[in-house]
């Protein structure tokens, strides 16, 4: 396959790219399938998402605002997903005229969140209930943001807090400040290091990919439900990879070494092994070669026409001639 002769394929092989494309196919195929069925597919119960309506109801009864924080990450898939969930929360809050506070740490996220929240109010026919103070930019400095949001939590006495997005050390400051005033907290972070803090401090936590499943769960949009199903197929594929990889690698490493891999000067080859009897090492296995392909001299040496416009060496020679 001459077309695939790229340096990235020499470095890590074709298997990773092939798997990514397979996952992409799973997602797109299931989106198409869900569109046909109208998204009528089963999604298991997620406690953290069921609690959203309870939290909004509580805030409405108490006449206090709802706080939403999309983390301190830049505008990426995580913050976009957080804003999408907040749009659903705002939709319900708008119907009950419950005030909201959405605090942003990044100007990019702020701009997007402001547009989305304003649109939600106008789609609900309640533009008059939207306040420009509903979405606020606080600061892009981590602890200045933490201090600002904590101040809002304490001053406004929020009844419910949704902490969804990319959080770091400030996660516990928010969660504990909310707890100190008795606010109900629904949290979820894609940072595996912060999830334990949220579990310890919050009432409901979205763990791992539950965060990404949230919009499918709340809206039952066929595209989102299909995408979720595609992710589940991909998880089955990944589990199969792990199991197969473990079995094949273990079986291979139990075999005696007959042909060993030699890596020298950016070129690799398999050579018959004639030394003392021993078992294969990890680098001699087929699983290793799948991610670290053998690179021949021919693959590494590419003949190209010289560039007629290049004058660099000539100039360098002239410059150094007098020395």
């Amino acid at each position: 396959m001459n077309f695939l002769q790229g340096s990235q394929y020499l470095d890590t092989g074709w298997f990773g790219v092939f798997s990514t494309l397979l996952v992409v196919f799973f997602i797109l195929y299931n989106i198409a399938r869900a569109k046909k069925t109208g998204g009528n597919l089963f999604i298991r119960r997620i406690a953290g998402l069921n609690a959203i309506d309870d939290a909004i109801g509580r805030a409405t009864e108490m006449g206090r605002p709802i706080l939403m924080v999309p983390g301190i990450g830049d505008l990426d898939a995580v913050s976009v997903q957080a804003v999408n969930i907040f749009a659903q929360v705002t939709k319900t809050a708008a119907q009950f005229a419950t005030p909201i506070k959405l605090c942003c740490a990044r100007a990019t996220v702020y701009a997007v969140a402001q547009e989305v929240i304003r649109d939600v109010y106008s789609q609900q026919g309640m533009s008059d209930r939207y306040s420009i103070d509903s979405v606020q930019y606080i600061s892009d400095q981590q602890f200045a943001f933490a201090a600002g949001v904590s101040g809002i939590i304490l001053r406004e006495k929020v009844a419910a807090a949704f902490l969804l997005g990319a959080f770091y050390a400030e996660s516990l400051i928010f969660a504990e400040t909310c707890n100190s005033i008795g606010a109900i907290q629904v949290a979820g972070s894609t940072q595996s290091t912060q999830t334990p803090f949220f579990i310890a401090a919050c009432d409901y936590v979205l763990i791992g990919d539950e965060f990404y499943a949230a919009s499918a769960y709340l809206t039952r949009e066929p595209v989102l439900v299909g995408s979720l199903l595609g992710q589940d197929w991909a998880k089955i594929l990944m589990t199969a990879y792990v199991m197969l990889g473990f079995l094949i690698m273990s079986a291979e490493r139990l075999q005696p070494l007959a042909v060993q891999r030699i890596d020298e000067g950016g070129v690799s080859r398999m050579e018959p092994y004639e030394g003392e009897a021993k078992r294969k090492t990890a680098s001699d296995t087929m699983v290793h070669r799948l991610f670290n392909p053998l690179i021949t001299e021919e693959m590494n040496t590419i003949e190209r026409e010289p560039n007629p416009d290049y004058e660099g060496e000539e100039e360098a020679a002239n410059a150094g001639g007098g020395a």
Binding site: V23, I31, N84, V112, T190, D209, T219, L224, S227, L228
Partner: peptide, 19 residues
Amino acid sequence: LGALAMGLRLWLGLEKGGV
């Protein structure tokens, strides 16, 4: 996987509502 699916939906403009 969630991030990949989200990125794919945004890239291809498949998402409706929200952002």
